[in-house]
Amino acid sequence: MMPDLGKYADAVLGAYAASIVLLIAIVALSIWQARRTKAALDDVEKRRNG
């Protein structure tokens, strides 16, 4: 299943690993910030309404 990357295997796998890590990092950071901010706003609104 794994293609034969020959002498460039390190370069190709390194490029994929670095890119996937960065993509996951920006997605995870965005989701984490979104959840934290929504919770903070809900908290303020609950206090204001209740």
Binding site: S30, Q33, A34, T37, K38, A40, V44
Partner: peptide, 17 residues
């Protein structure tokens, strides 16, 4: 879109605070 929504919520939360 997700991050803009987060920024809008953060702006509203700081205004309410």
């Amino acid at each position: 879109l997700l991050r803009t929504r987060t920024e809008i919520r953060a702006r509203r939360a700081s205004a309410l605070l």
